[in-house]
Write a protein that binds this DNA or RNA. Sequence first.
DNA 1: CCGCGGATCTTCT
DNA 2: GAAGATCCGCGGA
Length: 196
Amino acid sequence: MRSPLPRAFYERPTETVARELLGAMLVRRIDGVELAGRIVETEAYLGGDDQAAHSYAGLTPRTQVIFGPGGHAYVYFIYGVHHCLNLIAEAEGRPGCVLVRALEPVSGLEAMRLRRPAAKRDRDLASGPGKLCQALGIGLDEYGADVTDPAGALAVHAPNPAAPPDVAVSTRVGIRRSANLPLRFFIRDNEHVSRK
DNA sequence: CCGCGGATCTTCT
DNA sequence: GAAGATCCGCGGA
């Protein structure tokens, strides 16, 4: 009997949440099937003076959920093509979110392959923020979803405490502003990380 | 393996 | 108008 990580896990400093999400299991129920992947890469987007964060522009219809309580999903559409999934950190009233950048597929691989026809190998299924949303069928319908809800279609389960990941840190990928901050976390030498 | 450009929508200047 | 937390197919080495 598994249960999702509680809200208290998320309502902590964003960097801590980003680091400790490594190794956790993202579980997606869709079309009667359960898909799951281990989180192997994340990035923290902070409140305050992090100019790369969407919340830097203030509270807007799009960024509303980032200012709400922790443990909810922030999904947005980018480049007219892809969706990206974030998990909200910090308590209500304080912005902060964690971009889920890559998963190691664990179950439901057949369904993931059907959703990702461009993936030639299994390491292409979810090794990027847009790829993993496509693999798991995550879109704007999941905006605001409560990932601490055991009955929800999207949930996150605790990592195995007996196998703590070897965590590496770098600058974030694909941004221009506040680009020099060490806010990207990934599991060292994992084949499913989006890039070196 | 590496670099380049197109796709195509939302948000902000 | 333009940039953007991206991905993919193509061509060349």
